[in-house]
Amino acid sequence: MSLAAKEKWRKRVVALLRTVLLIGIAYVILQPLIYRFSTALMSMEDLYDQSVRWIPRKPTLRNFRLMWEHMDYVNAFGRSFFLAALTSVLQLFTCSMVGYGLARFKFPGSQIIFGLAIFTLMIPPQLIMTPSYLNFRFFDFFGLLKGQPLNLTGTYWPFILMSLTGTGFRCGLYIFIMRQFFRGMPKELEEAAYIDGAGPFTTFWRVMIPGAVPGLVTTFLFSFVWQWNDYLYVTTFMAGRNFLPQALEGAATKVANAVKDADALASSSGFLDDHFYSLINNAGMLMIILPLLILYIFLQRYFVESVERTGIVG
């Protein structure tokens, strides 16, 4: 065999191995999603039927219908959407600003501030959740406000304050991403703007932000997704309000009461059967994930590209 032919065969074998490997990995990644879809479409008979593994024999939309109604989906969706959009826009604003300040200006203490941002990432949010809750429950601006302390829990204020000051959930990571992104942008643009007499803030808004769109999209996506999926913050500061996580948790009891008389297999005297619970649970989880999947499909091009451009080296 000639050398060229050998090389050609080698390439084919490598390509084949890679394809097999990637299909395997893709299966592992997609398996929970496929599993969830198939379970959510099952009826009780399918779940107990040993011969049914992936494809339900009697597919039904009943689980989705029950959850739609008892999660109060439209309202919960609206609330969660508003909260995620609000926090991610505010976090984007602050974190890009802080990231830019750390990326392009050398001033005494800038290294320390960057270190603090990373430090906030290392503290599990659970650790400071109780004191944070107490601070917002009895809010007096840390002693600055006289008189009766305000109760900010149950309002959007805790989220607004934490986002605006870059101390919300994983904000340290967003500051890090934006810093890396701004560091990778060419300096010539800014220098030109300075020569034209623009100040640092004008330069930031007019020159840097438009150039940083892919980085901003990445940060936005992370921020939106993590707020949307968040359970800890929303149940702590918004206890008793119907956001998607609470809606999903609370739905089980409501469904149990609703199907109590009609369906003995699913619910006996108001207690849900464990397996029926997981059917509706999977339907509910899909209803939470689906909007994110759609968002991701729209933004993934920016996302994948910008992550490569950040060049998070050094």
Partner: peptide, 20 residues
């Protein structure tokens, strides 16, 4: 420039002290 850089990071600094 040094002052501007500091001002950019002030929101985080305030948040870090009071909310963290």
């Amino acid at each position: 420039q040094k002052l501007a850089g500091f001002l950019f990071t002030v929101p985080f600094l305030v948040g870090f002290i009071f909310l963290f």
